[in-house]
């Protein structure tokens, strides 16, 4: 527990991580404020779709949790790679990594919960019916954010540098979704984590392929476990 607390402090004192939390909390309400209400879908469905975009905050947190350890400002700087300090203080790499993943999950889960509560409260305030199963959908969204952050974390363990995972993952979940485009051609692409995961909280599939919420969650969990395992293996084996 002590190490989780330490990793929480390390993460939340970084300006970029704070930006990730702010993005996550504020993104969905901001989109909701500027987008016109849709007549074809229920307001609560639109709200959950908008909450999907807040996942960019989770991605930022997942990437920064790792890339901040490897940031190197060059020989003339007093600031050097934090990983050296981290591993001389906590030499067991798996304990270190587990604490870091736990701290990241806690941060992202809290951020997602705040975002969901704010969004749904805004919605309920306008007299909208939140519909049945809204709690389950909310939990699904939180799980989606946490798993996305852990996927970003796992990928950054492989690259060490945050730029590539940040650009690829943020582009894919905001401006242009490569996986979505691919799914138009290859149906199996629907099982990419960013397409399977949202079935946990979206009623209507954006791609037209129906995957149950539990199946969607399990598919995403599978991706997360594999990417984390590969990242952890590399972290354990390679020189810091």
């Amino acid at each position: 527990m002590r190490l989780v607390w330490v990793e929480l402090c390390k993460l939340l004192r970084l300006p970029s991580a704070r930006a990730g939390v702010a993005l996550g909390v504020l993104c969905a309400p901001a989109i909701a404020a500027v987008s016109a209400p849709s007549e074809r879908s229920a307001a609560v469905d639109v709200a959950f779709l908008e909450l999907t975009f807040g996942v960019i905050g989770a991605i930022l947190l997942g990437v920064v949790a790792v890339s901040s350890e490897y940031r190197d400002d060059g020989e003339d700087s007093a600031s050097t790679r934090q990983i050296v300090a981290s591993l001389t203080a906590v030499p067991s790499r798996m304990r270190f990594l587990a604490a870091k993943a736990a701290a990241l999950s806690l941060t992202v889960a809290t951020t997602a919960m705040l975002a969901t509560v704010i969004m749904l409260t805004m919605l309920a305030g306008t007299g909208e019916d939140l519909g049945p199963g809204v709690v389950g959908r909310g939990v699904g969204l939180i799980v989606y954010w946490v798993l996305t952050a852990l996927i970003a974390f796992g990928i950054t363990l492989l690259t060490r540098n945050g730029v590539v995972p940040l650009v690829v993952l943020l582009l894919n979940s905001s401006v242009i979704s490569f996986t979505y485009l691919l799914s138009r051609v290859v149906p199996a692409a629907n099982y990419f984590p960013d397409l399977a995961g949202p079935h946990m909280f979206l009623r209507r599939s954006p791609t037209g392929v129906e995957i149950g919420p539990v199946t969607g969650g399990l598919v995403m969990l599978g991706w997360t476990v594999v990417l984390l395992a590969v990242g952890a293996f590399r972290f354990q084996r390679s020189d810091a």
């Binding site: 004192r13 970084l14 901040s68 007093a78 600031s79 050097t80 790679r81 300090a85 981290s86 001389t88």
Partner: peptide, 17 residues
């Protein structure tokens, strides 16, 4: 480990921010 071995390798190991 800090109660046994204190080490300084390449600089402070402190994040710039």
């Amino acid at each position: 480990p800090l109660t046994c071995v204190g080490a300084v390798l390449d600089g402070s190991g402190a994040h710039r921010s």
